[in-house]
């Protein structure tokens, strides 16, 4: 079950283990007009720095493409479906 009021069904979370990378990714995506929100990562998603970019899953591929092109891949992406967080992809790189 979701333990987070800000995350609803269909939301995806790009989880970062670096505050600087999360802020940089937020700035770039917001600058491009994408509807994202930087939030504390839910407890269910253990992470080192505790930040996640939240967005609707319809924007998943576009956002990942942009982040990849800027070398700002998150540690991982999880999407909330049927009350459970499902990891989209294990690891993007070792430098998240």
């Amino acid at each position: 079950m979701s333990d987070h009021y800000l995350v609803r069904e269909g939301h995806c979370l790009a989880v970062f283990n670096s505050t600087h990378r999360a802020l940089k990714a937020e700035g770039i995506l917001k600058g491009m007009g994408l509807p994202i929100l930087l939030i504390p990562a839910p407890r269910a998603l253990a992470t080192d720095c505790g930040l996640a970019l939240r967005f609707e899953d319809e924007h998943l591929s576009a956002i990942l493409q942009i982040l990849r092109s800027r070398d700002l891949q998150p540690a991982y992406v999880s999407c909330l479906r049927d009350g459970q967080y499902n990891r989209y992809q294990e690891h993007f790189d070792d430098n998240h």
Binding site: D3, H4, L6, T19, L38, I39, G50, L51
Partner: peptide, 17 residues
């Protein structure tokens, strides 16, 4: 300042929980 704003946002988001 950037970190301070981030922490305030995080705090208010966390209040929900």
């Amino acid at each position: 300042d950037e970190l301070g704003r981030l922490l305030m946002r995080n705090f208010l988001h966390t209040l929900l929980e």
